[in-house]
Write a protein that binds this DNA or RNA. Structure first.
Lengths: 251, 251
DNA sequence: TACCGCTTGTGAACGCATGCACAAAGTCGG
DNA sequence: CCGACTTTGTGCATGCGTTCACAAGCGGTA
């Protein structure tokens, strides 16, 4: 593996510099899995487990062992052949790669049912994501503390986000408000947005959006239900097609 | 395109039979996007739009036009060259492919903050997902209606799910309870599960699980924040590396 | 009717991700 | 000290998904 840039690596430790070089090359899919490994590993650490093999860890994380090793190889070689991985070491390296050594302050916009749930989502498991601001349009909510943090009016987004250095904005508003809220967050310098509103947000290139869409998840499941019912139907009814349409098949 | 099975296609309409054949071949990723297209199209239909081109629709859905056309081609050729797509036609075909013509009754387990939010998530946009049962371990909650549906005790899962023909189970419990709840749902014949608990669920092959993991989403965002900060650092500080570690760069 | 311009549908090329299989590298027992 | 055993790290092949580019097809127009 050849490092293509020789600059900017003198005052940081070699390990950190190497991490940063690698971070660029980690596939999107692998990043998501690393987060899962991290959680599993944290659980193991709490249970007093100090070492783990790729086989054990992969099973606990629900993935293929080879894939796990490849994922870990993206962040460096921190295992010991013939033995496995040191849990603590792995945890700290994954945390560093995922940027969890910084503190990412989070703002939640839209304090409805979901917003409440998010605000109370106790410090986000695996810590590092303090919710530091809540916003809503409803003047009646302003000032009321939710999960220990007082709600601010939505017009204060820019000022407060800048002041509290919010790096992640969570949108939990009704769909019609989402784009406007998003625009305000962006103009407040927020570069990462987690969107729960069922809307496709338009953002500048330098802003990262991830969306969690309950309706879409349900519909994907629905698709699989349908596909299964169809398969069951073609198998169980042979060549007459009875019961194929609109009827739930329970074998 | 050659149909490989000649059986079971006589009593359903040709269009439906063709749909079912195709359903097997639709890539997972495309299914997720079809759900998005469906929402956008539904919105257009309500606004009185009757026709749409791949270019317009793709922009509204936030994807590449070519990808959109390919996705639509998986469900058949329902566009008109030189004109575009009929909104109504597209809506009904996507609904059929996604299995939204059946009614999927949903059970939510774990009526905490998130469970409340889900139970109140009014009929799930794009309808077709009636929440018909709520469960919790807490005896104090039993009988209290949430979102119009009374909460049942968790021990009743099997009986009630079978009775109400629940096809999708939503797990919104604390992590330690998730696997046990999952097992109960499975034994009640539920084949599709949407899991909000940060736990890797073990299920038999015939059960489909999708997970929504807030911590993972946040950590993926965190990764991107970190990567960006690093890039900004290497660009802005040249070859001395100052400000690279732990410091947030705001250009 | 014949032509023109527009948009779809798709074959083909590319790139990313997954899984396999094995060499490299370490530990442990004798 | 050596050999056997275990487990990592990774080159390579395979498959899936995305993107490009263009022929095919349709409506409108003269």
């Amino acid at each position: 593996m050849v490092s293509q840039r020789g600059e900017g690596e003198t005052t940081t430790t070699p390990a950190e510099a190497a991490d940063k070089e690698r971070a660029r090359a980690i596939p999107e899919a692998a990043v998501a899995r690393l987060a899962v490994y991290l959680r599993v590993l944290s659980g193991m650490a709490e249970s007093g487990v100090t070492a783990v093999s790729s086989e054990e860890l992969s099973q606990a994380a629900g993935v293929n062992a080879a894939k796990l090793r490849k994922d870990l190889s993206y962040i460096g070689s921190y295992g010991t052949r013939g033995v496995g991985y040191d849990v603590e070491v792995l945890v700290s390296h994954i945390e560093r790669i995922l940027g969890l050594t910084r503190n990412h302050s989070v703002a939640v916009v839209g304090i409805g049912n979901l917003g409440h749930a998010l605000a109370n989502y106790g410090g986000f498991p695996g810590r590092g994501f303090p919710v530091t601001a809540l916003f809503d349009v409803d003047a009646d909510l302003v000032g009321i503390p939710v999960g220990g943090i007082p709600v601010n009016h939505i017009d204060e987004i820019t000022a407060i986000c800048l002041e509290r250095e919010v790096s992640i904005g969570v949108i939990a508003t009704p769909p019609p408000a989402a784009q406007s809220v998003c625009d305000r967050l962006v103009s407040a310098g927020v570069q990462c947005i987690l969107n729960f509103a069922p809307v496709v947000l338009q953002v500048p290139d330098n802003v990262e959006v991830r969306k969690v869409d309950l309706a879409v998840e349900m519909q994907i499941l629905s698709f699989h239900v349908a596909r299964r019912a169809d398969e069951a139907a073609s198998v169980s009814v042979g060549n007459n097609g009875l019961g194929v349409d609109g009827m739930v098949i329970r074998p």
